[in-house]
Design a protein around this nucleic acid. Structure first.
Length: 427
RNA sequence: GUGGGUGUAGCGUAGUUGGCUAACGCGUCGGAUUGUGGCUCCGGAGACCGUGGGUUCGAGUCCCAUCACCCACCCCA
């Protein structure tokens, strides 16, 4: 068959046979987030482009060349979320959630879209779980949210993950730092690329993640933000570190972590794996004290992180970690003709009401083919309904693993009987 | 955006210096004397050889383009 068109570049189909991996990861992330008091929020897949221009920042790579932006039928500029924070924060402000008890803690699962060159661990549409805390400026919150991320990683069983930490200061120390950066880079002004000349004026920190060969070659000698932190920011960073020590969360300070989104202030961090190739960051986040105000809310501090679900699953696969196993069919009921098949359907319906995974033939297959099918789908039990069983309302439950049979009466206690048998197998 | 590698049925592969109806394994569907699966045996379906051009009497095999995937740079989740 010739397909009209294939799946777009950089996208993935998550197939039924591997979906249990996703369920495993999502469940653990959700449980941990809720144990910290986070409630789920669901926001639109697309937003007005303006949100990301303001939130993420007009000089970032994400905004400048990676967004899926288009005009809708009324000519509005719409953008598919390139990241989760902006939308979540917009929604909390718009719905007045910051008027309730603070801090406001929330989590979400979302798809993100970035037009990039796909490679291992980098897709154009990818999934992440995000956490956001709004309304607390305390270093305790920084430590708690990093611990939260760490807990998810630990509960998933991930090994060899390192946490890198940095502080990029507040607007006050940023001012000093920008001045130093500007001074440094102005020396090479003649060699810088066009966008960097613009960055030099508008946002000198973005010079540090330019990909052009010449600009990036000056990165190593550039001044580092840690040396320009004001007293408050230094104290904040020290407190975060102290608290992480107390919580037993191991980290290394990496002064080069800057993060590609403009909204970050103070603490920034990344959890990194070496097991999945060069795109090893499985979690990234930090504090963003200016974001709420930037997109139109009352000045409110905030912080958060996002984990890349595809990358986490890759790590788990490479480390051969356990996922919650797939469910199996509890009972398959085979039959012979229309009459017995209809009775089988009735029984299956009852069992499903009890929460069992029960199946019978819906393809008009021969009895033998039905048995083969039961075997193929890994049914735990199977039962045959023929003329006799129909007449006597009794049958045998056959355990497929070893063939042992248990006689049962097909009355209203049948489901309970099956339940005890299924439970026995689990033990 | 820049390099390198790859593209044959659902999956994994073979296809010799270009030559006849493109092969094999797994999977799938069916069958092996009428009510019991897994093993074995037999059979069926399923591929315009990524796509489009070109060279040639003739191309899965050669050339060009294009698309996609993989890996890396970079950046990030």
């Amino acid at each position: 068959m010739e397909l009209v068109t294939k799946r777009p570049r950089g996208t993935e189909d998550k197939l039924p046979k591997e979906i249990y991996k996703w369920h495993t990861v999502e469940k653990i992330a959700e449980n941990v987030a809720e144990s910290y008091g986070c409630k789920e929020i669901r926001t639109p897949t697309f937003e007005h482009t303006e949100l990301f221009l303001r939130g993420v920042g007009g000089t970032t790579d994400v905004v400048q060349k990676e967004m899926y932006t288009f005009n809708d039928k009324k000519g509005r500029s719409i953008t598919l979320k390139p990241e989760g924070t902006s939308g979540a924060v917009r929604a909390t402000i718009e719905n007045g959630l910051l008027n309730d008890a603070l801090p406001f803690k929330t989590y979400y699962f979302t798809r993100c879209f970035r037009y990039e060159a796909p490679q291992s661990g980098r897709l154009r549409e990818f999934n992440q779980v995000g956490i956001e805390y709004l309304g607390t400026a305390s270093a305790a919150a920084d430590a708690e949210i990093i611990a939260l991320a760490n807990d998810i990683i630990t509960n998933l069983g991930l090994k060899n993950i390192r946490l890198e930490l940095n502080s990029i200061g507040c607007p006050k120390c940023r001012e000093q730092y920008h001045k130093a950066l500007k001074e440094y880079y102005t020396r090479y002004k003649d060699e810088l690329c066009g966008t960097c000349l613009e960055r030099l004026e508008r946002n000198p920190m973005r010079l540090l993640d330019c990909k052009s060969e010449i600009c990036s070659s000056y990165k190593d000698g550039a001044p580092m933000i840690l040396d320009y932190l004001c007293d408050d920011c230094k104290a904040h960073f020290d407190s975060v570190k102290k608290r992480l020590d107390a919580l037993g969360v191991k980290y290394t300070v990496n002064p080069r972590i800057v993060r590609g989104l403009d909204y970050y202030t103070n603490t920034v961090f990344e959890f990194i794996s070496n097991d999945i190739g060069s795109q090893g960051t499985i979690c990234g986040g930090g504090r963003y004290n200016g974001l709420v105000e930037e997109i139109g809310g009352a000045a409110t501090p905030g912080l958060g992180f996002a984990m890349g679900l595809e990358r986490i699953i890759m790590v788990m696969e490479n480390q051969q970690l356990d996922f919650e196993p797939e469910k199996k069919c509890d009972l398959y009921i085979a039959s012979f003709d229309e009459e017995t098949n209809i009775y089988a359907m009735e029984l299956v319906k009852q069992l499903r009401e009890y929460g069992f995974w029960a199946e019978c033939d819906i393809s008009g297959r021969s009895f033998k083919a039905q048995m083969k099918y039961a075997n193929k789908i890994n049914a735990v039990y199977c039962m045959v309904i023929g003329e006799d069983e129909l007449k006597t309302k009794s049958a045998k439950l056959k355990r497929m693993s070893d063939g042992t049979e248990t006689p049962v009466t097909l009355d209203d206690k049948f489901a309970q009987k099956l339940n005890t048998l299924v439970m026995d197998i689990c033990l």
